[in-house]
Design a protein around this nucleic acid. Structure first.
Length: 1029
RNA sequence: GCCCGGGUGGCGGAAUGGCAGACGCAAUGGACUCAAAAUCCAUCGAUCGCAAGGUCAUGAGGGUUCGACUCCCUCCUCGGGCACCA
């Protein structure tokens, strides 16, 4: 047998593997499935960098190992080929992006094939191919149909160099993630995906995933859930008298409501539509919820008048399900003729129906009666409110529901115990008290704030509004403040600041007071000033905060700077119960703190807090919120996903803008909307596609009139947020994927991605998966079961590899010099898989030597050494089989390789191996160095591929037979080591220890020459004996 | 500022409560050779000692334990992330 010649054998096996489609994954194998995925690369002009083969080799080792363990492995490759760098590069070299992308993918394919990764190449996908992006477009349309893709004007990040909008996530340190240019902010109309609808599920479903904890943490942080409360601060402004149109044609209802409004003393005159000259007011109540129905009615009327509009709808929540009486009646009657039934009979049928729902939902019949309101202001701002009251379904007026008794009433309101028709006006007002309170709140000038610290409400000494808060704008427009110019100037200055600039001012807060208007602290009833400051963000919460300078560092700084009052509401818990913390405000008066007193942001006991004084601050939160008339509220930092890009090389957005019908999706039968070849695809202040009349001008699919296509393309993160669902069925032209095939292969069992993808790609992919779940396409809610990250390969100097630093190691050169197997193995041996480790040009020599020696050993060219004699390497082999298998599963490839090296070091000293042992050895190195192992396998006279040979089993008995080394210690310090039988017992070990010369010597040296007995002897099984003296 | 990870020989790293430095690189000495490369053998944390052996040592300091790289506290330092989210 000749010497190890990687070039020759690697070419040979790579060709065979490809030609014979050895790694084709079968959709209907009887073997258990295993789906492995790695981030498909962005095929850049630079070719592979060393980080790619590091992650890919790990996956390939795992894939080959799993095949040997009897799994049908789906392991694939594809190209995330759309995107800016390719487009920019194409512009630079004056070629078409498509040409560039094709050349790049060809190069990438050549490179990954050179490494011998065991992909099923028949499933290769390319996001820039119409076959693929047809389904990206289809996905967009599905999201649009569900209201999850919407257009809105928004402040966006604009990269002036790339001439496009970027998602918040693509802005790093105020600069473009791709090109590093400083980002500008602009207001533009954009497409968004409503990922915020999934915020809570994206958070809770993280539990139970086999992901690195840091990645889970980063997802959680990004979603940014905060539990707090919304509290209204009334203003010292008079409540306006006003007319309000009630969106109903029902005279009876109108009269009752009119009386209620009058009785509540709100200064509001309720009018019917016909009173303001609107005769035909009619709306179909087909909303999914009562709030939606109320909204529909209000909106329909609001389009016809400039007066504020009010609409209501009523219904029930029974055992968690919302149902309006109209629906209940329809379902309860089940097609029966209503006119043929008595009122009692209808009531009975309805109650049976209610009961059935309740029983289906776990037997609980407790229910809530709800009245949903919708107000629309003359400025078309929409406000929803709801009044909720528990009711009990009864058979008798005050009894409980017993299925065996005859059914009577429909419901009994809890307070008066009467049917609505029997109530007096006062009683009805009492019943609807919470509703009237909600109305009252709506029409009382107030500012709604969000806080996570409602427990500190008694310490709120001023409010702060974001400069973009509508109230600030209102104050300026209506000239409601005395320092108009000052406020207007401040708002103007901050509107020119980017978020980035605002952040730079963290330590120097600015702001102005709205003079002439004050807010009322809802619990202290004190009038407090209102300020405008850009340290409050308009885009989070309600854009307004209550400032509690004693318990919030930002408010504290602001209060110090502008001389605002600071009042303590919480003091730290006393260390000894009952004894107050020294320095805390004691003994009553003097709630005002001096500025130099420190702030306390932690939990504690309430002070200066009226009836809540003395309570634990955490426990007081909910009670204070209720007391202040606020409500608990959960906020998320997560924002909707902006997906429009004003560039060429991406997926065209499959939407049509019709002057008559508005936005109309391209009919699904007309997909894909092909990205056309353009003469000029450079961005020039507008999306390149807008410059192509042939593309843009189109007939509206709805009315057939002239319309225009959307000229923007999709963020490439959309392409990659579903690609893992395409591999199970990559060539399907009739649907996005076959549900059965997806159900068979998904979810992905193992996903290896770079640490840079821990937020966006994962979040987006999880969102799309959940959406497809909700649409019934997949049954699971999380796409990736187990996740691993590969650490970077750094340059030899410990720096990141970069072209500009000239420290890049080129995979082509390394493979040409050492071969793919050596390169693969060194990438795995270099350090722990998820650590960033520097490339050591000399270090690879060690792996090369090892593989050469391994080759020699297996081909019989190495002679047994005369230096020492190790009778058999069999025990060591079985120990190694165990170790290598366990390490592959745990992604500890460096120690797996080290175990193989240790084995060879020992085996070379032993007698030549038996054939079966040699076979096992070749099998366990195969995942790491598959070309060499396969060549050895065939040299040993075998046919077929190692990938389908079973992974060798180890014999635990052989491992147990091995001698073990046991340690003797005196006072925890090792004094002697002996090799003993693995089956050694405690008594024997202790005896041996006490008999040891070295131990006796050590005991004597420790000054106990009087040979007194040890205080204690500690025995750890198969490890040590420790003699304590 | 806050949150997460790290810090072990000249270097990459191993050991997750039980022999610190596995495995590999580099280095030194030797064998082979006319010579070099390749290969093979030996040494290889510091320190004291002729030696046997001792002492010190896992960023620093404290603690828990029979025993700590490993667990706890304080601090230093490097890397990454978030950054006025109320």
């Amino acid at each position: 047998m000749s010497a190890y010649d990687p070039k020759k054998i690697e070419e040979k096996w790579n060709k065979k593997w490809l030609k014979e489609k050895v790694f084709k994954a079968s959709d209907d194998s009887s073997k258990p499935k295993y789906y492995q995925l790695e981030t498909f690369p962005y095929p850049s002009a630079a070719g592979l960098h060393m980080g790619h083969p590091k992650g890919y080799t790990a996956e390939d080792i795992h894939a080959r190992y799993m095949r040997m363990r009897g799994y049908e492995v789906l392991y694939t490759m594809g190209w995330d080929a759309f995107g800016l760098p390719t487009e920019n590069y194409a512009i630079k070299v004056g070629k078409n992006p498509k040409e560039i992308a094709l050349a790049n993918t060809d190069n990438f394919r050549r490179q990954v094939q050179m490494f011998g990764f065991s992909y099923d190449w028949d499933r290769e996908i390319d996001t820039s191919s119409p076959e693929y992006y047809k389904w990206t477009q289809w996905l967009f349309i599905q999201l649009y149909k569900k209201g999850l893709a919407y257009r809105a004007e928004a402040r966006v990040n604009w990269c002036p160099k790339d001439q496009t909008v970027l998602a918040n996530e693509q802005v790093i340190d105020g600069k473009c993630e791709r090109c590093g240019t400083e980002i500008e902010e602009r207001n533009m109309e954009q497409w968004f995906f409503k990922i915020t609808d999934y915020a809570d599920r994206l958070l809770t479903d993280l539990k139970g995933l086999d992901w690195p904890s840091a990645t889970i943490k980063r997802q959680e942080d990004w979603i940014g859930k905060s539990e707090g409360a919304e509290i209204d601060f009334e203003l010292n402004l008079p409540r306006p008298k006003m007319d309000l149109v009630f969106a109903t044609n029902n005279q009876g209802k109108f009269k009752r409501m009119q009386k209620l409004f009058a009785a509540a003393g709100l200064g509001i005159t309720l009018k019917m539509p016909k009173e303001i000259g609107i005769a035909n007011f009619d709306v179909v109540e087909d909303g999914k919820t009562i709030a939606e129905n109320a909204g529909k009615k209000a909106r329909a009327l609001a389009n016809l008048t400039d007066l504020p509009v009010f609409a209501d709808d009523t219904g029930f929540f029974i055992a968690g399900e919302e149902i309006d009486p109209v629906t209940v009646k329809r379902n309860a009657l089940g097609g029966a003729d209503e006119k043929a039934l008595t009122v009692e009979q209808i009531a009975e049928k309805m109650q049976v129906y209610y009961k059935a729902i309740a029983t289906a939902r776990g037997g609980k019949v407790d229910a809530e009666w709800r009245q949903a309101l919708c107000f629309i202001t003359p400025e078309k701002a929409v406000v929803h409110e709801e009044a909720v009251r528990p009711v009990v379904l009864t058979d008798e007026r005050h009894g409980t529901l017993d299925p065996s008794l005859p059914l009577r009433g429909l419901y009994i309101p809890k307070i008066t115990g009467k049917y609505p028709s029997e109530e007096t006006e006062e009683e009805e007002l009492l019943e609807l008290k919470s509703l009237m309170e909600a109305i009252q709140r709506l029409f009382t000038p107030a500012i709604k704030i969000f806080t996570t610290r409602p427990d500190t409400l008694f310490g709120a000494t001023y409010l702060v509004l974001a400069p973009e808060h509508p109230f600030v704008d209102g104050c300026i427009k209506q000239k409601a403040i005395s320092n108009l110019d000052e406020v207007a100037a401040y708002v103007k200055v901050s509107s020119h600041k980017t978020d980035r600039m605002r952040q730079e001012d963290v330590k120097d807060k600015t702001g102005v007071e709205l003079k002439g208007v004050r807010a009322i602290n809802p619990v202290t009833k004190e009038e407090i000033p209102i300020w405008v400051a850009d340290y409050v963000l308009g885009s989070y919460g309600t854009g307004a905060i209550m400032a509690v300078p004693a318990h919030d560092e930002r408010d504290f700084e602001f209060a110090k700077k502008f001389g605002l009052p600071i009042r303590k509401a919480v003091v730290p818990k006393p260390l000894i119960p009952g004894v107050p913390v020294v320095g805390a405000a004691m003994g009553g008066a003097a709630p005002e703190l001096r500025v130099e007193e420190e702030l306390w942001e932690g939990r504690g006991d309430l002070i200066n807090s009226g009836e809540f004084t003395g309570m634990d601050s955490e426990k007081a939160k909910a009670e204070i919120v209720a007391f202040a008339g606020g409500k608990m509220k959960t906020q998320y930092k997560l924002r909707d996903w902006s997906v429009s890009r004003q560039r060429y090389w991406g997926v065209p957005i499959p939407m049509i803008h019709c002057p008559k019908d508005g936005i109309v999706p391209v009919p699904e039968s007309e997909l894909p909307v092909i990205l056309p070849d353009l003469e000029n695809y450079r961005p020039q202040g507008m999306p390149p596609l807008a410059g192509s009349p042939a593309f843009i001008n189109v007939k509206c699919p709805q009315c057939g009139g002239d319309a225009k296509r959307d000229a923007e393309t999709l963020d490439t993160f959309v392409d990659s947020s579903w690609y893992f669902l395409r591999y199970p069925d990559p060539h399907n032209d009739g649907e996005i994927f076959d549900k059965k095939k997806a159900a068979h292969w998904m979810p992905v069992d193992l996903y290896v991605i770079g640490a840079e993808h821990t937020v966006l790609h994962l979040l987006y992919s999880r969102f799309i998966t959940k959406f497809l779940h909700d649409e019934g396409y997949v049954s699971f809610v999380e796409p990736f079961t187990r996740l691993k990250h590969q650490g970077l390969i750094m340059a030899a100097d410990g720096q990141k590899m970069s072209k500009s630093k000239g420290n890049v190691v080129n995979p082509d050169e390394i493979v040409a010099e050492f071969g793919a197997d050596v390169t693969r193995m060194y990438l795995m041996f270099i350090g722990p898989f998820d650590d960033a480790t520097p490339w050591d040009a000399k270090g690879i020599l060690g792996v090369e030597r090892f593989l050469k020696r391994f080759w020699k050993y297996c081909t019989g060219a190495s002679e047994a050494k005369d230096v020492a004699t190790v009778p058999s390497a069999k025990n060591a082999l079985h120990r190694t089989i165990k170790k290598v298998g366990e390490d592959i599963e745990a992604f500890k490839f460096n120690t797996a390789i080290s175990a193989l090296m240790i084995f060879l070091n020992e085996a070379e000293l032993a007698t030549p191996p038996a054939k079966e042992d040699l076979s096992a050895l070749v099998k366990i190195i195969h995942p790491f160095a598959p070309h060499m192992a396969q060549e050895l396998w065939s040299f040993m006279g075998n046919h077929g591929y190692l990938d389908f040979e079973p992974w060798p089993a180890y014999d635990p008995a052989l491992i147990a037979q091995e001698k073990i080394t046991i340690v003797f210690q005196v006072n925890g310090k090792t004094k002697d080591t002996v090799s003993v039988d693995a089956a050694i017992k405690e008594d024997a070990a202790k005896e041996m220890a006490l008999a040891s010369e070295k131990i006796r010597f050590a005991i004597a040296a420790a000054g106990r020459s009087d040979a007194q007995s040890p205080k204690r002897i500690i025995y750890v099984d198969k490890k040590l004996v420790n003699i304590v003296i």
